[in-house]
């Protein structure tokens, strides 16, 4: 797999403040890399440098083998993405925006334009002026603009903002297809942990301008000692005392709830997935009814907190 994006010791100062500090990373073909970090950690600044909007004070950015500062046009010919918000010419139609972008890229057929319109599902509104679009529709058009020239590198900064659940699912499918089928490298930052977990192959974690982790998503999740599960049982006290006795101080939350026609209690606690069959068996032996067991989708967040030592994701 060839390297599509290479950040070599990039550093950026705003006045005297160092907002991105000596970051180096690589992203390969067909790989989706998530970008995580608390507010103000330098995620957007990094993405803006990759997009050519900000100039790094130190270091180099190589896109598909071209140094951004030396071969800007060739490097950016391989770049597509949405930075911060999907920006476009609001007084022009969606189609007109796409045609303008196609003109700059060159060699983009009308069929390709129609294809991306169809891909993002904007067929019915593509001739409306962009100022009449909802945020979700703008995001879709932004994705269309990013995909138009089939770039080797796709960068998305909070791409699912404004998208409805269906849109989020479609976006995820598009990104996975473009990456895993068409071989593009994707670099995506998102607030939604579940999104990242479902979509990304690796995550880069940034804190105070520094890259503090660059891991395979599986390894990150795996690396977390206990994964939280929510179990809904019929007997509160018995269940709680059993769990405490068997697994120690692992309970995070206990809440009364309703299940079927009777009262129940939901307990969130850390447990390894391998231990779940044994747990269910033990509870059943003690006469405690187990209604459901499901993982709580916070594993990546936990991993993130573990790595960053408690900072909130932003």
């Amino acid at each position: 797999m060839g390297t599509v994006l290479e950040l070599n010791n990039i550093t950026k100062y705003f006045s005297a403040r160092c907002v991105v500090d000596n970051i180096s990373l690589t992203i390969n073909e067909g790989e989706i890399v998530g970008f995580l970090g608390p507010n103000g950690s330098g995620k957007t600044t990094t993405i803006k440098m990759i997009a050519g909007l900000l100039f790094p004070d130190k270091g180099s950015i190589i896109i598909n083998g071209y140094d951004l500062s030396k071969d800007f046009e060739k490097a950016m010919a391989n770049f597509g993405g949405i930075v911060e918000n999907p920006e476009m010419y609001k007084d022009l139609s969606g189609r007109c925006n796409l045609e303008m972008a196609a003109r700059i890229h060159g060699g983009i057929s009308k069929e390709r334009i129609e294809e991306v319109i169809k891909t993002v599902g904007l067929q019915n509104r593509i001739d409306d002026k962009v100022k009449r679009y909802s945020l979700g529709m703008k995001q879709r058009l932004g994705v269309a603009l990013a995909l138009l020239h089939k770039p080797k590198l796709l960068v998305f900064d909070e791409p699912t903002n404004g998208l409805d659940p269906k849109g989020i699912k479609e976006f995820r499918e598009i990104v996975k297809r473009v990456s895993h089928v068409e071989g593009a490298a994707v670099f995506v930052s998102s607030h939604m942990m579940s999104e990242m977990q479902q979509m990304c192959d690796r995550v880069a974690i940034l804190e105070s301008g520094k890259l503090v982790g660059m891991e395979d998503i599986a390894a990150v999740v795996e690396g977390v000692e206990s994964t939280y599960y929510k179990i809904v049982v019929s007997e509160r006290d018995a269940a709680v005392s059993f769990i405490n006795e068997k697994y120690g101080d692992v309970i995070k939350e206990v809440q009364d709830s309703q299940f079927a026609n009777g009262s129940a209690v939901s307990i969130v606690f850390a447990i390894k997935s391998d231990d779940i069959p044994e747990l269910i068996k033990e509870l059943s032996v003690r006469g405690i009814g187990v209604y459901t067991v499901q993982p709580v989708e916070s594993s990546l967040e936990d991993a993130f907190i573990n790595i960053t030592g408690g900072s909130q994701i932003g």
Partner: peptide, 13 residues
Amino acid sequence: NGSIKVLAVAPIE
């Protein structure tokens, strides 16, 4: 209005 980003990320100096 931010539309400069459309231009700035395009493959044109």
